[in-house]
Design a protein around this nucleic acid. Structure first.
Lengths: 225, 225
DNA sequence: TTATCTTTGCGTCAGAATAACACAAAGCTT
DNA sequence: AAGCTTTGTGTTATTCTGACGCAAAGATAA
């Protein structure tokens, strides 16, 4: 990262909006910057592209170093090019969003201290650079995507119950959805499969455990908001 | 464009998929390359980012020089980073798609000769670089977008008839749509306004002339394929 | 002028999809 | 065993959709 300013071409970085769902809350992973500019500000994790590295590889590298994670679902979001977005000079950012299950993530001890943290999306701090705009677009994309395509299970355990999936949707879409109508739509789409087992130790009636159906019957459904 | 290879950062270009609709055909604008690599191949128009230039500005510059056009509807599509996509070296392309009304376009005389041309999307030549992949993604995006959001009028004259809009949809979605059901859906969405005038000189019954409604009642509709 | 044809505008109707809601079974607590 | 909460499974009224009929407007030809 020695020559940040290339005189010919803008610098090229990847910024990541990492969503995690835990305890009925949607959270995003932020990093506390230790350098100027935006020292001590919270920002999205990111990195400059290395030679011969693809966007996806850069993302994986960040996820591995910051979170110790492999095999994360991610999708390209948008490329940001406002000339003033980085006070150091012209910098292009290709934004990706990722979905992870925080339960499976071991944030490395070194970072755990206080420079990496999950924030509830409704209680975000002020973010450095243009990262708030990036976050907003990511949230918007996640919301529209989850309404018609099965990405929700990326945020849940391998086995999950119908109420858990239902709560996830209500949380992400920030609305109430009729439990019974939701159930019908999801089951009709064959997006999930009933394993026949039940979640033991639940509070009252033990709900059925489902898993994601890798071969979808329909390739889409529609949860209206 | 002197230093194509920046040793630190990949070169950064914009590629444009320009769609035009004319004579009941959807066409895309291609350029015949005069230099290596891919000399004499058809490619998407594009340009390298200049200092302090934003993606959108680069697009406008290309549209202005190649087509003599201003004020074109465009939208960012995706950023391409395959290391092998440009044989000269690492090159990132930010792809945009644009919608124009060819009737309003005067391709400048110099280019008109034989290096810029419209191609029906069903009769595309072999394209240089990874431009076929870019085109495919653009077409896919246009199709999904037009099915739920009013972008079609960008391809038509300011005043248009219901049969014209209907044909546009059938052409882009590459399917047949019941004329009467289409009419109902579009009118229900309040996406267009009946001007009260009729297209004179039409073959038989003179159809009503509509215009785009800038203040939409509903912000979406759904034309199913 | 009248008959005929094509195109366009408007309406109907059966079936599907949806929203709102009732109810019972399963598992806790007392 | 009674009462509570949670979960699974209906039911019903309404809306939406797809398939289609029909008449008005304009052109053409007898």
């Amino acid at each position: 990262m020695k020559a940040f300013h290339s005189y010919q071409n803008p610098s090229l970085a990847v910024d990541l909006v990492v969503f995690g769902y835990s305890k009925q809350q949607l959270a995003v992973l932020l990093l506390n910057r230790k350098e100027e500019p935006f020292k001590d500000c919270w920002v999205l994790p990111g990195a400059f592209l290395q030679m011969e590295e693809r966007f996806r590889d850069t993302c994986s590298r960040v996820l591995k170093t910051k979170l110790g994670m492999d095999d994360v679902y991610m999708e390209q979001l948008y490329s940001f090019d406002e000339p003033e977005r980085d006070p150091r000079g012209r910098a292009i950012a290709v934004a990706y969003y990722a979905l992870v299950n925080p339960a499976r993530v071991a944030i490395s001890a070194g970072n755990m201290a206080n420079d990496v943290a999950w924030f509830n999306i409704k209680e975000l701090p002020k973010l450095g650079f243009d990262h708030h705009a990036i976050f907003e677009i990511a949230l918007q994309r996640l919301r529209s995507k989850i309404a018609y395509f099965p990405v929700g299970f990326e945020l849940l355990d391998e086995l999950f119950t119908m109420p858990e999936l239902h709560e996830l949707y209500e949380c992400i879409l920030d609305t109430t959805i009729d439990r019974r109508n939701f159930r019908r739509k999801i089951l009709d789409s064959a997006y999930i499969i009933n394993t026949g087992n039940k979640r033991e130790g639940a509070q009252n009636r033990h709900p059925d455990l489902y898993k994601f159906n890798k071969k979808l019957k329909k390739n889409s459904f529609q949860i209206n908001v």
